[in-house]
């Protein structure tokens, strides 16, 4: 368990905070301070909407250390509404109900339980969209 590393990534993991390139407008996740599209410095934070769709997925039966308590779990590539393709777990869904192209939304969940004594690591996962009208409602 690396406390400083998890602490540094909190904004990214809790809220899906990335960056936007002020020069070309590309939305960047995770934050990398240089725009992968136009190579300009990009340091303006942007909280992503959390909406996206399943690009591809698999089921993990043999998890890496630290994830044992959640296995088997579904790992997916999510195409975010703003463009970036990210890796994340799916939650609140069974593997036989997942389809490529399925609309999903970000939720904050336990990613590592920390055992009885360690810190709990929270972060983004995705689940099937719960409430369709929230999608359609304009942001005020």
């Amino acid at each position: 368990m690396n406390i400083p590393r998890n602490w540094r990534l909190q904004q990214q993991r809790y809220r899906l905070e990335g960056e936007v390139c002020e020069k070309c407008g590309a939305r960047i996740f995770p934050a990398r301070d240089i725009c992968p599209e136009c190579e300009a410095p990009a340091k303006t934070p942007l909280v992503f909407s959390g909406k996206g769709e399943v690009y591809s997925y698999t089921t993990v039966h043999t998890p890496p250390q630290g994830f044992e308590e959640f296995a088997p779990y579904i790992l997916a590539l999510i195409q975010l509404e703003e463009g970036p393709l990210i890796t994340a777990q799916l939650t609140d869904v069974d593997a036989d109900h997942v389809d490529i192209g399925m609309p999903v939304e970000m939720v904050t969940r336990k990613v590592q339980g920390g055992g009885a004594e360690g810190p709990i690591v929270y972060g983004y996962k995705f689940r099937p969209v719960l409430h369709a009208t929230v999608h359609a409602a304009p942001h005020e």
């Binding site: 809790y14 308590e69 959640f70 939650t91 609140d92 939720v107 904050t108 969940r109 336990k110 990613v111 709990i120 929270y122 996962k125």
Partner: peptide, 12 residues
């Protein structure tokens, strides 16, 4: 669910 607790539920 196994990945939920009072923190995650409160956040939602």
């Amino acid at each position: 669910g196994p990945d939920e607790d009072v923190v995650t539920m409160s956040i939602e």
